[in-house]
Amino acid sequence: MQTSLHPLRRLRDLGGGSLAVEVDGPIPATLPGQFFMLRTGERWPVLLPRPFSLYDRADDGSWGSFLIKAIGPGTRALADTQPGEKIWLTGPLGRPFPPEERDPICVAGGVGLAPFLLLARQRHRQRQRTRLLFGGRSRAALAGIDDFAGIAEVHASTDDGSHGFRGMVTALLLDLLGKGTVRAGESVFCCGPDPMMVAVAKVCEQHGLRCFLSLETYMACGYGVCNGCTVKVQGPRFHGWPYSKTCTEGPVYEACELVHDH
């Protein structure tokens, strides 16, 4: 872990309001699902940095990128950064997707795609396949999908049918279960909006798939000192403690570890 300033190399427009924010290295070796806290070096408009999964990284760490959609003042400031201007990076932080999973099925929605490019790239280098299910409202919402060409087996879904399977990504997952492309006993890695992750976890539970979710929570520090990003949990990993810090014990949890209060 380190905190350091990195010049912006370029902003790559991925469409649909999403950008790959590419910074100069050195970017430390990072496991898929781990994240960095980002803030601009100058004119950061808010107090706290914002967490982002590492989207891509040069093999030698000479550059790295983050998938960002400008929706608030922090993300807008990052999107407005000019090449050469500097960005503070703190990381890599957090617990990654379980690296020992041999053939995971990645399920992504929106900027939840972020952790999976690094995963697909690392697996491709080891000549392992990666199945990616990527859902959005329309083709425009599938920002970043082209980056997976040649390194992952991509199954896209759109609500309006403008690209790939027509329907939600959970329907696509059920369709692939029916076709035998996905089988009971396999593991799903999922990242996306909360309602989507809840729905995916439910499908997994019903069809005998293990399910790992990468959560996005409100964080102040990212390195385990603010105790602000906790979620309610259960299971042996937490030794009876009801809360878990997503920054250090997450952001990846097995779905059965999370407790929903309703």
């Binding site: 107090l47 409100y218 105790n227 403690w241």
Partner: peptide, 25 residues
């Protein structure tokens, strides 16, 4: 002390609110 139920923090103009609730072992 298990601490308080989430959400526990919220950023405000030039500051932040917290209600961690002294979570500690």
């Amino acid at each position: 002390r298990h601490g308080n139920p989430p959400p526990r923090i919220f950023e405000t103009p030039a500051g932040m609110l917290n209600s961690i609730g002294l979570e500690n072992k």
